[in-house]
Computed example of a mutant assay.
Amino acid sequence: MIKARVTVTLKNGVLDPQGKAIEHALDGLGFEGVGQVRQGKVFDIEIEGADKAKAEADLKAMCDKLLANTVIENYSVSIT
């Protein structure tokens, strides 16, 4: 079994209102010096019966087709 983590984040230049709201909330809670906050999402995925190369190819296809909106988001795949 192959375990992987896919991290999806907004591309630079794309507005992130949720990140901005988190940034303001942290300031309101007294956390000073917090810079720009950007939010994203993480997927932990297990793939059975695949070798590492096929798993990586499948994971990238998953990102391109479903997990990430590649117009406004970047993704990275890490296989453990």
Rank of each mutant, 00 (worst) to 15 (best):
residue 41 K to Y: 05
residue 51 D to P: 11
residue 26 L to K: 06
residue 63 C to E: 11
residue 34 V to N: 13
residue 28 G to R: 15
residue 36 Q to L: 11
residue 59 L to R: 07
residue 69 N to Q: 09
residue 26 L to V: 03
residue 50 A to F: 05
residue 55 A to D: 03
residue 46 E to K: 07
residue 58 D to W: 02
residue 58 D to V: 04
residue 56 E to K: 14
residue 63 C to S: 08
residue 53 A to G: 07
residue 50 A to I: 04
residue 51 D to G: 06
residue 22 I to G: 03
residue 52 K to N: 07
residue 25 A to H: 04
residue 26 L to A: 14
residue 54 K to P: 00
residue 24 H to T: 00
residue 68 A to Y: 00
residue 29 L to K: 07
residue 45 I to N: 10
residue 47 I to T: 12
residue 40 G to Q: 08
residue 60 K to C: 05
residue 36 Q to D: 09
residue 26 L to Q: 10
residue 43 F to R: 03
residue 52 K to T: 12
residue 70 T to F: 15
residue 61 A to K: 10
residue 30 G to Q: 12
residue 39 Q to D: 08
residue 56 E to H: 13
residue 68 A to M: 06
residue 43 F to K: 01
residue 58 D to R: 05
residue 42 V to K: 11
residue 65 K to F: 07
residue 22 I to A: 13
residue 67 L to M: 09
residue 24 H to W: 02
residue 51 D to Y: 00
residue 21 A to E: 04
residue 62 M to H: 02
residue 54 K to Y: 09
residue 26 L to F: 07
residue 48 E to C: 06
residue 37 V to H: 08
residue 36 Q to G: 08
residue 40 G to T: 12
residue 43 F to Y: 13
residue 31 F to K: 00
residue 23 E to P: 13
residue 69 N to K: 12
residue 40 G to E: 07
residue 23 E to T: 10
residue 41 K to P: 01
residue 45 I to H: 10
residue 35 G to F: 01
residue 60 K to M: 03
residue 29 L to E: 02
residue 40 G to V: 09
residue 56 E to M: 13
residue 39 Q to V: 11
residue 59 L to G: 05
residue 36 Q to M: 09
residue 53 A to F: 09
residue 22 I to F: 02
residue 40 G to F: 09
residue 53 A to M: 14
residue 68 A to N: 03
residue 59 L to Y: 04
residue 25 A to G: 14
residue 48 E to R: 11
residue 35 G to R: 06
residue 62 M to Q: 06
residue 60 K to T: 03
residue 53 A to V: 14
residue 55 A to F: 02
residue 53 A to K: 15
residue 31 F to P: 00
residue 69 N to C: 11
residue 30 G to E: 14
residue 44 D to V: 02
residue 25 A to T: 15
residue 62 M to W: 03
residue 35 G to K: 02
residue 57 A to L: 04
residue 37 V to E: 09
residue 32 E to L: 00
residue 62 M to L: 10
residue 64 D to P: 04
residue 70 T to I: 15
residue 45 I to E: 11
residue 70 T to N: 15
residue 70 T to S: 13
residue 55 A to L: 03
residue 35 G to W: 03
residue 35 G to Y: 01
residue 22 I to P: 04
residue 25 A to V: 13
residue 65 K to P: 03
residue 31 F to A: 01
residue 37 V to D: 00
residue 68 A to E: 00
residue 53 A to E: 15
residue 60 K to H: 09
residue 69 N to Y: 14
residue 24 H to C: 03
residue 70 T to G: 08
residue 52 K to M: 09
residue 32 E to H: 01
residue 60 K to V: 05
residue 34 V to I: 15
residue 64 D to M: 13
residue 69 N to T: 13
residue 23 E to L: 12
residue 35 G to T: 04
residue 44 D to K: 00
residue 25 A to I: 13
residue 32 E to A: 13
residue 49 G to H: 14
residue 37 V to G: 07
residue 65 K to Q: 14
residue 30 G to K: 05
residue 51 D to N: 12
residue 42 V to M: 10
residue 43 F to S: 00
residue 39 Q to Y: 00
residue 32 E to K: 12
residue 63 C to Q: 10
residue 31 F to N: 01
residue 34 V to G: 14
residue 68 A to T: 08
residue 64 D to G: 11
residue 38 R to K: 15
residue 36 Q to E: 08
residue 43 F to C: 02
residue 23 E to H: 15
residue 58 D to I: 07
residue 57 A to K: 09
residue 49 G to Y: 14
residue 36 Q to V: 10
